[in-house]
Design a binder for these strands. Structure first.
Length: 844
DNA sequence: CTAGGGTTAG
């Protein structure tokens, strides 16, 4: 095609994924077309993953760097010394030995330990004296240190109250007889605090141990590394690991496993993670199955399917063996890549190794299907799991809930909640966030408020996702002031913001045309070290020209050059919701300032190497439609060239009425069609709107027909019914023309129209007021202007109807066809003029 | 010391 490879790929992959764009494609949608298999199609061609044809020994020698493999780990992961230094049996056996469990600790605990635990569980927190009293009365019966560790574990597992565990620790330390015993208690409390998500307290108590001279042990360091690992704080874990070595404490295999685990979870570059692994080998410490499982999880996180498969195979070759964790992690890698076919094929493999799939296996697979929107298959697995007698746990319930939320099966949400209640599974923050999303989507803000109160009562702490979710649901409902208040509440929460939180609030601002405010927020987030991603930018670009309210003194002027200021934003939103409509000082000035802002954004995107995707293009096209002049729009469109000359060529060509652009447009349309419906229809809507807006009405019509041919808008076009509810106003208007023309063609062939022909506009997707659909008004105006004999149905204001006979008579009138035919304001001569097939079919 | 779940643009 006429394109050179664009400097950026067009895709809508999530920023944290590592895309491997199909080099042939301009447009690429990750969610629907997982890329992992594309990069190496033969990778899993055998149903047996450890077949002889697989990559034996790849970890032992640097892999030959073929183009397909160059992005895989080409590493001598295991040097020859590893092979010699161990027999596979020793490692296998070590892994098979029963792990030290909570159960074994329970057995070692004395009756007194069980008693004091019960007492402490019902004692109140603020009563430190009481705690000391209880401890004093049991002291002589408690075994040191085992019983104390047992109590700590119990408090952690059952009470889930970090301060109480901490208080018990501090009260118990003086009772320990030496550093070793103190160290054991310290390790226990660090582990518990880490488990409870309080890595901050874990660090404090660790530092306390160090200062008191009993913390400088391999156990304490490992526990702290693991505490950070659990909470996804990989850099902290790595720095503790360094500190450990600097303090002269030699890491053991648990320390290495913990740091490798932290890296895998925390999204550390896989090469760095593997670096720890190599170091481990160099220091003569044997990796075990957990090491490999953690490495595998690292591959999963990084989306490196091929590396995961190599590891998965190597585990057998090296005699490490696989366990349920190995299989589940590997299945997860496949699910993350969307390769469900292969993911389910792992099950027979597991069974032949006498490992039964468990609730984790099922929830992984269910979620894999759900991510591909294959909800039915996900629910089938749920049924299968139930029939196998596998009890759902909290994670699995949450997975199920998210499937119901995504698929809009709201009545099932209630059922699942009741079921959880009956079984005695408490909702956690993920459950609450899902429920908030679900009920928010239904507009049940009463239930949302109840959920927030309920969380507070049950002591479940909100997290940053709760706030982003709330902002999103309020924003989608047009409750912008509520959305803004969520952001200000967040600032007082003391939680750490992330890119999604900022993007959500920026979206709220952008939806109200507050482009400048949005850019201030962009600055603010960068100042506190949060990098914007393509979503952040797309959101702002899309906000251009959306201003639908006026503010005293103008939004720009009052705060020009200043920083984002909460009070000012509050004031703006206050005015917004009070419907204060005051004349803007100069609307045109604001718009040109905003345009300037947007142009600056493109530069920032390029500087920060944020890759635009098809949504960026849609946003730019929409922004063009909102420009005050053709010149401004051209200026904006020109920026598209920086990103992708091919897409630019098509858009600009169509805008200028170049017939030649249609050939390239065809291939662009085909690429867009490979993406999911909402993504592609948004692009068609944006492109059509721009063409329509700038007078290229025949061009707009052609784009719409291309879309119809490719079924971009589901079931939009029937012979006698037109459903416009998924279309933008330009697209809808172009569509009405085409549809009426096609009916006219039908009539001219001698066919009769049915009793009633109708046009559906829906009620408007994001309209604040029911029935106040802008689309409906646009269509009404259009129908009036051409004198089409349609009227709104009495009890369905989203539907225009006309008796077939009347429509037919109107279409037969002499001037009607002329009215319906669309023309371009600009056209440029083309080399052999060809009518598009879609237009020929309509005999236009 | 190892596995699975929740959020953003169109």
């Amino acid at each position: 095609m006429a394109s050179s490879t664009p400097p950026y790929s067009i895709n809508t992959s999530k920023p944290h994924q590592s895309p491997h764009p199909n080099p042939k494609s301009h447009l690429h949608k990750q969610q629907k077309r997982p890329h992992r298999l594309q990069s190496s199609p033969s990778m899993l061609s055998s149903s047996s993953y450890n077949s002889a044809s697989s990559a034996h020994g790849k970890f032992l020698t640097p892999s030959s760097s073929t183009s397909l493999q160059s992005h895989h780990l080409s590493l001598p992961l295991l040097g020859p010394e590893f092979r010699r230094s161990r027999t596979t049996k020793v490692i296998s056996k070590r892994n098979l030995s029963s792990p030290r469990t909570y159960f074994s600790q329970t057995r070692s605990a004395s009756a007194a330990a069980v008693d004091i635990t019960a007492r402490l569980l019902c004692s109140s927190l603020d009563d430190i004296q009481g705690l000391k009293g209880i401890l004093g009365s049991f002291q002589h019966k408690l075994k040191i240190p085992e019983d104390y560790c047992f109590v700590l574990h119990e408090l952690g597992n059952r009470d889930k109250c970090p301060p109480k565990a901490l208080a018990f620790f501090h009260a118990s330390i003086p009772l320990m007889r030496n550093s070793t015993e103190k160290g054991k208690l310290l390790t226990a409390v660090i582990g518990i605090l880490g488990k409870l998500g309080r890595h901050d307290l874990a660090r404090q108590v660790f530092d306390f141990g160090l200062s008191q001279g009993f913390g400088n042990t391999v156990y304490a360091y490992s526990a702290l590394i693991s505490a950070y690992a659990r909470n996804g704080l990989s850099s902290e874990a790595m720095s503790v690991f360094s500190l450990m070595k600097a303090s002269g404490v030699r890491p053991n295999n648990i320390s290495y496993n913990a740091v490798i685990d932290a890296c895998g979870k925390g999204g550390v570059d896989l090469e760095i993670t593997v670096g720890f692994f190599r170091e481990m080998l160099q220091n003569g410490i044997c990796p075990d199955r957990k090491t490999f499982n953690s490495l595998l999880a690292g591959c999963s996180h990084a989306g490196r399917l091929e590396d995961a498969r190599i590891l998965f195979d190597e585990m057998i070759d090296l005699g490490i063996g696989r366990d349920i964790y190995t299989y589940n992690t590997f299945i997860d890698v496949l699910c993350k890549g969307g390769n469900m076919k292969f993911a389910v094929e792992v099950i027979p493999d597991m069974l032949s190794s006498y490992i039964q799939p468990n609730v984790v296996t099922y929830s992984t697979l269910m979620d894999g299907y759900a991510k591909l929107e294959r909800h039915d298959e996900a629910l089938n697995l749920y049924m299968e799991m139930k029939s196998m007698g596998i009890q759902l746990d909290r994670v699995c319930y949450n997975t199920l809930l998210s499937i119901y939320v995504k698929s809009g099966r709201y009545e099932d949400i209630t059922r699942v909640c009741e079921e959880m209640e009956v079984i005695g599974i408490d909702k956690d923050i993920i459950t609450y966030n899902s429920l908030i999303t679900g009920y928010g989507k239904q507009g049940r803000f009463d239930i949302v408020s109840y959920l927030i109160r309920d969380m507070r009562e049950k002591g479940v702490a909100s997290n940053v996702l709760t706030y982003s979710t709330l902002m999103d649901i309020y924003s989608k409902a047009g409750m912008y002031e509520d959305a803004a208040n969520v952001f200000f509440d967040f600032k007082e929460s003391g939680l750490k913001a992330d890119v999604v939180l900022y993007s959500s609030f920026i979206d709220v601002l952008a939806k109200n045309g507050l482009v400048k405010c949005a850019v201030w927020l962009l600055d603010e987030m960068q100042q506190i070290g949060i990098e914007p991603n393509v979503v952040t930018y797309n959101t702002i670009i899309d906000g251009f020209g959306k201003s639908r309210f006026f503010v005293e003194g103008g939004i720009g002027n009052g705060m020009a050059g200043g920083k984002a200021n909460c009070n000012q934003i509050v004031r703006i939103f206050g005015n917004l919701t009070k419907d204060i409509i005051q004349p803007m000082v100069d609307v045109a000035t604001k718009k040109s300032e905003d345009l300037f802002c947007i142009l600056g954004l493109f530069q920032r995107m390029i500087q920060q190497r944020v890759k635009p995707n098809v949504v960026t293009f849609s946003a730019i096209l929409n922004a063009c439609s909102r420009c005050d002049s053709f010149e401004d729009a051209s200026l904006l469109l020109e920026q598209l060239r920086l990103f992708d000359s091919f897409v630019y060529g098509v858009a600009f060509g169509l805008l200028m009425g170049c017939r030649d652009a249609w050939l390239r447009a065809q291939s662009l349309f085909d690429e867009v069609r490979c993406m999911d419906n909402s993504t592609s229809s948004a692009f068609y809507n944006a492109l059509t709107d721009m063409l329509w807006h700038y007078g290229q009405r025949r061009g707009a019509q052609q784009v719409v027909l291309e879309g119809v041919q490719r079924q971009v808008w589901e079931n939009t076009w029937n012979e006698f019914t037109l459903d416009l509810h998924l279309m933008s106003s330009g697209a809808a208007q172009a569509m009405v023309h085409s549809w009426l023309l096609s009916m006219s063609a039908i009539i001219s062939k001698g066919q009769k129209l049915p009793q009633v022909v109708s046009i559906l506009t829906g009620w408007g997707k994001h309209s604040k007021v029911t029935g106040a659909s802008p689309l409906r008004r646009v269509i009404q105006t259009l129908l009036n202007s051409i004198g089409a004999p349609f009227h709104l149905e009495r009890f369905n204001i989203g539907r225009f109807v006309s008796p077939g006979a009347i429509a037919s008579a109107w279409l037969r009138e002499s001037g009607t066809i002329t009215l319906l035919l669309l023309h371009d304001e600009r056209s440029q001569p083309s080399s052999p003029l060809t009518l598009l097939p879609s237009l020929q079919a309509l005999q236009l």
